[in-house]
């Protein structure tokens, strides 16, 4: 409401509230909120160019895109690339690798952090607990480039420290990164190694939020520590556990590009190649832009469906909302 626009003679008289004409309302909306739109502008422009334009760029999955022809000139080929994808044995293997590696990672991420949080909560020495936390959170912040370099060194067949250690128990050197099955195991274990500590934080926070009076009451009623964990701690972290588990279902096609790209080599392509690394090799190194886009689109669409379902489930079962 702007006073300047009101006639002084009518201002004193109580007038029935009149709806402003559409144009006036629009003007006052703009006047009140234009700074908010301006503040959003940089983010909007960047998102439009670098996030939304590529979404429309997926149409090249239905073309034979050639860089010198551009999007307008390249010929349409319909579903050809998708048909090729589903008839091409390598592609099937890649999809299967992705699902198996990602699902095993999800299963590990489901249980290791929560068990670790419960165990850590039983440690009574504060300094010991703090130190443990400091050490286990650290790997989360190191990049897979650094960790890739480290793992290639320590898992080496020629005197890597892990094989030397196993050798003391009479175990023959293991080709961790050169044998397909061992590669999968290495990828899954190193993934949980990197993130179990950090993923436990959310459970530790939930445990810290439990009212101590509950434990006191239980202990007066004669419940031992095990009973207290079973009937107080676990029920208290169950909602957040459900949220974490359901949200992780959205990642069934995310097998961890950064990790695998820094650890794999042609020897393990048959069991270690995943959709993302395949797209990179075929699309950017092999310049088959359209086919790689089709593979990527397949992944994006399945991923989209899974994420939407998992968010809905998390909302329904645990009242979780992202904002």
């Amino acid at each position: 409401m702007t006073m300047a626009a009101t006639d002084s003679s009518t201002a004193l008289r109580p007038t029935p509230q009149k709806r402003k004409p559409i144009k006036g309302r629009w003007l006052s909306y703009v006047r009140k909120t234009w700074p908010l739109h301006v503040l959003l502008l940089p983010a909007l422009i960047i998102a439009l160019i670098y996030n939304y334009t590529p979404m429309f760029g997926i149409i090249i999955a239905f073309m034979d895109y050639e860089p010198w022809l551009g999007v307008n000139e390249s010929p349409w080929v319909g579903w050809e690339h998708f048909e090729y994808l589903f008839s091409y044995p390598d592609a099937k293997q890649v999809i299967w690798n992705t699902i198996i590696i990602a699902s095993l990672k999800i299963v590990m991420q489901m249980f290791v952090p929560v068990v670790f949080a419960l165990l850590l909560n039983e440690v009574r020495l504060t300094w010991y607990k703090r130190t443990a936390q400091t050490l286990v959170y650290l790997p989360h912040f190191l990049s897979w480039v650094v960790l890739g370099g480290i793992f290639v060194d320590i898992l080496s067949i020629r005197g890597g420290i892990v094989n030397r250690f196993l050798g003391q128990f009479g175990i023959e050197p293991i080709f961790f990164l050169a044998d397909g099955d061992w590669f999968r195991i290495t990828v899954i274990l190193s993934d949980i190694w990197k993130d179990f500590g950090f993923s436990a934080i959310i459970f530790l926070a939930a445990i810290a939020g439990i009212n101590p009076a509950l434990y006191e009451a239980a202990s007066i009623d004669g419940a031992n520590r095990w009973k207290q964990v079973l009937h107080i701690t676990i029920p208290a972290i169950l909602p957040i556990f459900i949220v974490v588990v359901t949200l992780s279902l959205g990642r069934v096609l995310d097998a961890g590009f950064d990790q695998i790209f820094n650890l794999y080599n042609p020897l393990v392509y048959d069991k270690g190649d995943i959709i993302d690394t395949f797209v990179y090799r075929v699309g950017l190194q092999g310049a088959q832009f359209s086919f790689a886009t089709a593979v990527g689109l397949f992944k994006s669409i399945i991923g989209f469906i899974l994420i939407v379902i998992s968010y809905r489930m998390a909302y329904k079962w645990a009242g979780y909302r992202i904002f």
């Binding site: 160019i49 334009t53 590529p54 979404m55 760029g57 997926i58 992944k299 994006s300």
Partner: peptide, 15 residues
């Protein structure tokens, strides 16, 4: 944008 993305190749081409 958190739910869907164009994937590696279209993003690369836009850049």
């Amino acid at each position: 944008m958190m739910l869907f993305n164009g994937g590696l190749i279209p993003t690369y081409l836009v850049v």
